[in-house]
Each structure stands twice: as C-alpha cells, then as structure tokens.
Simulated scan of single mutants.
Amino acid sequence: MPGRHSRKPSDSTPHQLADFKVGVDNVIFSVDTEQNRLLVLLVMRDNDPYLGYWSLPGTLVRQGESLEDAAYRVLSEKIRVNNLYLEQLYTFGGPQRDPREAPNRYGVRYLSVSYFALVRLADAELIADGVSGIAWYPMNQLPDLAFDHQEILQYGYRRLRNKLEYSPIAFEVLPELFTLGDLYQLYTTVLGENFSDYSNFRSRLLKLGFLADTGIKVSRGAGRPASLYRFDADAFAPLKDKPLVFI
C-alpha cells in the first residue's frame, strides 16, 4: 500500500546465537577516614589483553560455579575481610567490550556481571600473592583501566552514592562507636562538600531514631567534647523496608 513501508527479514541473514564467556568484576570501595578519601580496590593484570594495566578484581566463571561463588572466589584471593557483603550491580555485555572477541560478529563474546561492596579499610588485608600489583586507589587519582572497567567503576560509584541516601551502608565502614562529625565527614567524602549542611544532616539522622547515644564523650582538638554514637540495628529493623531519606 502507498505510504507504508515494511521490512522483511532476509532469508540469507543468519540467526546465529551469541556464544558467551561469562566473567565477574568486583567494585570494592572503602573510605580512608583519616585522609577523607574514597578508595577503590584495583589489581594489575599479569597477562594479555591489557598486560600491565590496572583493573577491577575479576575472573571468568568456572564450569559448575555460580556467579556469586565466582565473585567471592576472586575476592578471597585478593582480600581478607570479615563479613564481606557483595551486591550484584549490573551486567555489561556490549559487543567488542573485550579485545579477545573475534573481529567478526560470530565469535565468542565476553559478558561481565559486576558486583559491588563497601568494606572497612582497617579490617581489609590485601593479598599480594600471585598478582603483579594490588592497591587501594583514590577515586580522584585513578590510572587508565583495562577493558570497560572505568564504566563499571563509575556505575558502582553511582550505586554507592544512591545507597548512602536511603540505606545504612555508611555504618559498614565506620568504627562501632563514632561521632556525628565522623558520620558527616564520611558522607562528605563520598558525596562532596555541598551535599548538606551539618546541622540539617545531624537533625535528620537523629530523628530517624536508630543512632544510640552511648553517653560517652570524646575530645578532639580545641572544640567541646562530642558524643559517641553507635548504630542500633534493632531500632533500624522496622524501617528496613520503608522508603527513607538519610540526607
């Protein structure tokens, strides 16, 4: 009919399914509370492709292994930390994201399922055995990264910022006892200097009711002593599934 266009699939167009190898890449953040720096864990690649480049800790999934098991396996080879919690982040599977893919469109494709975590720096012991290099890098001093790991890292950074706004993830990296100033500084380190003024931040967090004042005060510098708080998981439990805004 005039004015209408239709496209018929060509019988000569092959409909071959993609042949995937699946890997996991882990975005592991920590916070250097002494120097107010957000850090990410990187390892140096010791084989091609991207030999000598820094990358996120990752591995290809083995036969009979779940994605989560693969993610925990590669981390257990790189870092020792108690109660490490991994959360699935996103799947990256664009064509040609890995140089090992064949130049034609029918070769093996490499798909990456990424995971995300935030760990306490003081409790994290890096394992240097069997790697060319492993280090915590400040987010504002990143080297060139292998593959599309810069994209994966930035996606993880956005997830971290979002989680600070609606979940108690900050308490995963603070010591058991902390001042409200310590908590505010952690948020400032991750979100930037202008995310909120201290008085509004303090008022909002205390109204939520899950910060317990220990009655202990600590002196730091010339200011008046500050109260030490702890995160009360029992008080937070009824709020866990409710929409909250921490900041």
Rank of each mutant, 00 (worst) to 15 (best):
V131K: 05
L142S: 03
H149V: 02
F147Y: 15
V113D: 08
A122V: 09
S112V: 14
K163S: 15
P138G: 10
Y166V: 02
W136C: 10
L145M: 09
L118Y: 04
L160P: 12
L121G: 04
Q150F: 10
G130L: 10
N104T: 09
R105W: 04
A102R: 14
H149Q: 13
V131P: 07
S132K: 07
Y137M: 02
A128V: 11
W136D: 06
L153I: 10
I134Q: 00
L121E: 14
A146T: 00
L153N: 04
Y115T: 03
P143Q: 11
G107I: 02
I127K: 05
H149A: 02
R105N: 09
S112N: 13
K163L: 13
Y137L: 00
L121N: 06
L121C: 02
A128L: 07
N104W: 09
S114Q: 05
P103N: 12
I134T: 08
S132D: 08
A102S: 15
S132A: 15
R120W: 04
V108D: 06
N162F: 08
L118V: 13
N104D: 15
Y166C: 06
I134H: 02
L145D: 04
E165R: 14
R100T: 09
G156Q: 05
L153V: 07
R100A: 14
V119W: 07
G133F: 03
N140Y: 08
P103G: 10
I134L: 03
A102N: 10
W136N: 07
P138K: 06
Y115S: 01
Y155E: 15
H149E: 09
R105M: 06
D129F: 10
S114I: 07
E125H: 12
Y137G: 01
F147Q: 09
G107C: 05
R159H: 08
E165L: 12
A122N: 11
G107K: 05
S132V: 00
L145Y: 02
R109G: 03
S112Y: 09
G156N: 08
A102G: 15
A146R: 08
S132E: 08
Y137S: 01
G130C: 07
G133M: 11
S112R: 09
N162T: 12
Q150K: 13
S132C: 03
H149P: 01
A135V: 04
R105E: 10
N140I: 04
G107Q: 05
P168F: 03
D123M: 04
P168H: 01
F147L: 13
S114E: 11
V119Q: 02
R158H: 09
N140W: 03
N104F: 10
F116P: 05
D123F: 02
Q154Y: 08
L142K: 08
D148G: 11
Q150T: 11
Q150H: 12
G156W: 05
E151G: 01
